[in-house]
Write a protein that binds this DNA or RNA. Structure first.
Lengths: 203, 203, 203, 203
DNA sequence: CATGAATGAGAGTTCATTCAT
DNA sequence: GATGAATGAACTCTCATTCAT
């Protein structure tokens, strides 16, 4: 049993190693410019080995995304323990930024890279995505129950707020913030989020 | 004369046709996945012809970007005529969305796609980019002179606001808004922008 | 008439310009690596123009060769005026080296580059070649009449002597003499020829 | 073990097959005119396979050259066992001709084809080249010690003698001996070399 | 289970050559 | 007569993928 267990574990570990390595390389050089051979070399395995764990390059990409969404959901779930909905909303934003900072490769794949087509027919990995979005909508609705955002539509608001954080993160990840010199970019994003939070907190 | 004129015009038109076609294909399939051959085929010319107009694939990409930034700046410049800075800021956002809607291919290239690295030597085409950003910062500063956004930093605010519109546009362009069904996406973005504008208008 | 004359002359001059330019470029970069476009550009004409004067690249090559052989024959004919056959033979060698030094591009094409195939079927340009070879054989035979080279075959000797000068020239033109540092290569070749002449002069 | 051994051997054999095939084709059609595709086809492999054994076309060329120089040096080293320097010099010439006859493709690459430029950084493969040249100079110096070639410079003589054999070989390899009909070309070269040897043997 | 040699398609790019103007 | 835009084939090289071992 123990032997089988170990084998199973090693298999899982190798799969995760591939996922992590590929995610990094995809992010750093782009999907197309990252060759399977290069991934294999990076983890000191032969190209063929990757195909034991993933049908093809697309599936590899797809599973990275799935993994990313799982982790993402964990980050967002942290806010559960906060009682006040308005505060929860604000922390939600911070957690969003934190995830992007901790896992830029996943973030890029999940929200920026061209969707690997199959997402439509498969859609599985969007479950976590939808749940995450649900967390946001839920918080907004509770805020509204408490008297905030009167006259606004919660769905529209969710897009507005999501767009806010996604926009900043996407600009950073895709290196479009060079004109903001003189301050650490992560700090800058935090400040901007704080400004945003401050502004909406009185509405 | 007329003959030469016509030739000149045809040449310019072909160049623009290549630019437009390439921009579309880059957007739809990504830079790496779009082959020169495919672009040539799409406009019914031989591969070699493209090289009469562009040194290589990078230059083609670069010129698309340059063109995009020029048009972008024109869209934003529309707000010049608006006197009230707060109103100007809000229209600026609408123009931003309008550009993205009219020219999603350019938008994608300019703000979402991986920078084609040469950005260092390039810098040129970012002039329009910087100018455009300047327009935003300027408006914000005038708003602050009129008493708005007290206690906020204009630079930080500019990132916050840019992030706001970019985020929504980027999510749409990269097809991450499927969960928002039941309403036209462009309308949705407008609504979200209106919500944002409404909220900041009292600050 | 004068107008036609001028046109005729200009035409001839342009043809010669093409020949000379192409010969230089072929020599410097090789036949394959020299593009018709590049030749055209070097003489400030359009690619199409070259095709008015030469059917294709091969014919251009071929005519360079023909021209080269004509000039070559003129160099060798200089020895005619020398009475003593043994002295004539020695000057023949010097003229050979002189031609190679004055026209390395032609030399390369004529004696080193891969024969452009068609020479077999056409053979025209070898007329001058054969005549030149005839000059050598003739001189040798006269030397033998005067008692030199007894016991040798004139044909075999002609190859031996031709090989001698060709070998040195070919090594120089194809840059295989780098190990001979410290002395001007042309001088070195002259010295080696002198040694050769000195040695055979007593036979 | 045997399995790995066989694999290793097959790999080495394939590499040598590529080298040999490429050398032949380079010689027959020139370096530029020989495509990697064509080489691959000639050995019934896909183009990509060649790249498993050689980084690029230049490296392929380079290794051919290196191999050639190694073999060449072996041919020349045969003369070591001959005591009398004058006889050694003459056999050296015969070995030179023998190498050219046995390996015309290598000879062409090594001494006739345009240097693939990289010669500066290369230098490595010229070690055998220089050693080979050293053999020649050494023999000449020993001949001079024995009273031959008085009044001549050994370096100059080395060029003269090298030029002699190279010239004949180069003319043959590059098909410039068509006018010598009626006798086998290899015999002819031998005869010419004999004439040369006979003439210098009394000096 | 892992290897890595091999494939064959396709990438970007260049070229000799043609032909409407 | 000269132009130069256009062609289409060919180039070197890389890639995702397969499969015998």
């Amino acid at each position: 049993m123990t032997i089988e267990d170990r084998k199973e574990r090693e298999k899982r570990e190798l799969k995760e190693l591939i996922l992590k390595t590929a995610a990094d390389m995809f992010r750093k050089q782009g999907y197309e410019s990252t060759s399977m051979r290069a991934i294999a070399k990076a983890i000191d395995y032969s190209p063929g080995t990757i195909y034991r764990y993933f049908k093809d390059k697309d599936e590899l990409m797809f599973e990275i995304s799935t993994t990313g969404f799982r982790i993402f959901y964990q980050y967002l779930s942290e806010v559960r323990k906060i009682e006040d909905p308005m505060e929860r909303l604000q922390v939600l934003g911070r957690q969003y930024l934190l995830f992007a900072k901790d896992h830029p490769a996943y973030y890029d794949l999940m929200f920026i890279m061209p969707d690997p087509l199959k997402s439509l027919e498969e859609g599985e990995h969007w479950e976590d995505g939808h749940q995450s979005h649900g967390v946001l909508v839920e918080v907004i609705q509770e805020c509204m129950k408490n008297g905030h955002f009167q006259g606004h539509d919660p769905i529209v608001l969710s897009l507005m707020i999501w767009g806010q954080v996604h926009g900043m993160v996407a600009l950073q990840i895709r290196c479009r913030l060079e004109m903001y010199t003189g301050k650490d970019q992560n700090e800058l994003l935090q400040d901007a989020l704080n400004s945003f939070n401050h502004i909406i907190s009185n509405v």
